[in-house]
Design a protein around this nucleic acid. Structure first.
Lengths: 401, 401
DNA sequence: CTAGCGATTTTGAACGTTCATATGCAATAC
DNA sequence: GTATTGCATATGAACGTTCAAAATCGCTAG
């Protein structure tokens, strides 16, 4: 009402006295306690250079004035932004609901506690993502990048390497064995192998695998875990594999085909929860019950897994831990010390629910990541074929130059 | 192998000639085409001040050198960061899976096409969130904030107002009718009213409501939609309401109680999909089928809704549109023109699936949001959204002072 | 008493922009 | 021919830090 008249304020009454203190600069702090700018700067960046008495005085003044170094000024001077860039995958990507949701949250938390902020951006394609990288880097808005969703023929790592951008990938450099960048990944093979052994323990011998079409590194990895576990158990694998693109419809169709085939599986390990949901659908179509007539294990432990009826056994990725490692690796990279790229593989954990037929434990809802305690109850008797240990991340030494 | 010896590089051979051009500054561009700094600056920020010939020359040089203004330098000088801060809710928050996932993605996309970047951060509590605000603002790392998940007695809007931080809220200022900030929200009442009418159309007369305990603005809103639609239809409402904290267990328990009560509902409108899932559980417990023996409608259309069996009818929020409006409102706010706060309410849309008993449409999977439509994404960086949204949202006039 | 030294603090410059102002130049007005 | 205007471009300063180097202080040693 009152201010309808003029548009550009004549600048008189505008701001009330207001509780907002003028934002403190380093100069103001300096004057406030009678020392020079640089001393304030040192108090923050190299406190050991100050006499204890001075340090105390300065810190108190900083506190009093609520001073924080201006991001822009500092970053202009130091050429470091303390910001990490990370692409958000299109939400459709995680078909069965947000797993990456929790991962990203953990990523932000880890970054912040390491003194970094996360700049999030959306991109629909790899090329678009590269364009954003280019923009962010030219404007010097980020120090480094967290790369997600690596795949065969991925143009992004090469681009980043060529432009000497510090980055760490979530996901192995599929297809380029001697990549020179750091990455963190989840050992899918170990997850599917666990799933196979779990089903074998329950008495299954014909355990199938529902995977993606050739060309997915993630699926190859998980397939390989299935295959080697089957081999190790002396189980035949022919006629037990179905492949298609990811999705519920695919899962349903593939399952039908396998069940109608010459060697119908009694258990099924799936490359994703979407596939597993499809498998459950197919089972329901015949009036069967998942977990009784066909044992099904998914992958990802997406939020739906525990909501489905019967609930879905699934392999859970340690996404919080992975997020933390991605951040600390990137920060290490940014610290400038030249080191050989690290390659970190983390083991996932099978969450047993109803769909695999083991009725022992059917938790209604499970926490999103590893529970703090040693809750490995169900798999008490871990049959160990290979040496993959559960908790310690496996570090693979760089092989070739 | 080769580089096993020394650790700190002696700094000789390290970098190959490399395809990385030295990052261009405004000075370099200026020299490159024989004009002054300021002319380059003008070419970017006020192109109409240049003679066409000069402009052309400069733009070409910019292109050639791949110049982009340094974020830090520009932001130091202009006191604007072109960055928006936004808190990520803990992943557990969206019980049934990532709805906010898609919202956040849309937010980032909208921001970028408006010339802004999004700084994401995690916070567990409101107080922690305020601490992060304080940090970000003191360091001048963001220009403004997108606030999510508003609720009664929310300390955040007050804090932001007091500190004169530009912000827009996703969610109404529950409990403070004459709040002076802008917000965007989804008209929950309209959603539940739609749900009620849908069920009434199917012949139901005893339509219940599963809500949260008193004190949730979101629930009050949705409840109110249910209540007024019932009243408008001349249906009695007594004995048809259950309240508890959100969750599947709650939904199940409440449903049981209602079904065992004196006036068992034949239809149920739920405040959330979690509640609805609980309701489905309760129905299953009695060997009933949702949609046949009890009609159920959820709220949020979370990813599971279409995956459940029977699939869950649910009210879908136009999260992409909301994200876009939040961003454009905030940008308007940041443009500095004093305007009365805008309050935007958008209508959600009921997605009918099996659980409500209307077998007419049972899409397997539905797209996440309204079709994109004539997207404003083409706008060049730094330009602001000019006109208010394309879809004509419903605007509520500011009432009180 | 003074030189010398390390610890502490200060000073001037620079980071890369944009703002405010000044200059140059061409066209118009007197 | 000179003053007046308006447009196009250039110059100096400033934004708020940290870096590099210089200055000062407090001691110990000669």
């Amino acid at each position: 009402m009152v201010e309808t008249g003029g548009d550009r304020g004549s600048g008189a009454i505008r701001r009330l006295p207001s509780a907002v203190p003028p934002r403190a600069t380093i100069e103001m702090v300096a004057r406030h306690c009678g020392v020079s700018r640089q001393t304030i700067s040192n108090a923050i960046n190299a406190p050991d250079r100050l006499r204890p008495a001075t340090l105390h005085k300065v810190l108190q003044a900083i506190e009093e004035l609520g001073y924080r170094p201006s991001h822009a000024a500092r970053s202009l001077r130091t050429h470091a932004t303390n910001v990490i860039g990370c692409r958000l995958l299109p939400s459709s990507h995680s078909g069965t609901g947000g797993v990456l949701d929790g991962w990203f949250h953990a990523l932000c938390a880890a970054a912040r506690s390491g003194g970094y902020d996360v700049l999030a951006f959306a991109a629909a394609t790899d090329d678009e993502e590269i364009e954003v990288y280019d923009d962010l880097l030219r404007r010097r808005a980020v120090d480094g990048i967290i790369l997600t969703n690596t795949h065969y023929l991925d143009p992004r790592p090469a681009w980043l390497l060529q432009h000497e951008v510090p980055f760490v990938a979530f996901g192995r450099p599929w297809g380029s064995a001697n990549a020179t960048h750091s990455w963190v990944d989840v050992d899918g093979a170990s997850g599917t192998a666990d799933a196979v052994r779990h089903l074998a323990d329950l008495g299954h011998t014909r355990i199938g695998f529902l995977g993606l079409n050739k060309g997915s590194g993630v699926c190859d990895d998980r397939f390989q875990g299935w295959a080697s576990a089957m081999r190790a158990l002396g189980l035949a694998t022919t006629g037990l594999v179905g492949r298609a693109e990811d999705g519920i419809a695919s899962g349903r169709a593939l399952t039908e085909k396998l069940l109608d085939g010459p060697r119908p599986p009694t258990g099924l390990v799936c490359v994703s929860d979407s596939m597993a949901v499809g498998a459950i659908r197919a089972v329901e179509d015949r009036g069967w019950i998942a977990g009784r007539d066909l044992a099904i294990v998914g992958f990802d432990d997406s939020p739906i897994a525990s909501l489905l009826r019967p609930s879905l056994s699934s392999v859970r990725q340690p996404i919080v831990a992975v997020a933390g490692e991605l951040v600390s690796e990137l920060i290490a990279e940014l610290s400038g010390v030249k080191r050989r790229p690290s390659r970190i593989l983390r083991a996932p954990r099978l969450i047993v629910r109803e769909s695999s037929g083991d009725r022992l434990s059917t938790p209604e809802i499970t926490a999103f990541d590893e529970a703090p305690g040693p809750s490995h109850s169900v798999l008490a008797r871990r049959s160990h074929f290979d040496t993959k240990s559960q908790q310690t991340p496996e570090r693979i030494k760089k092989k070739g130059a």
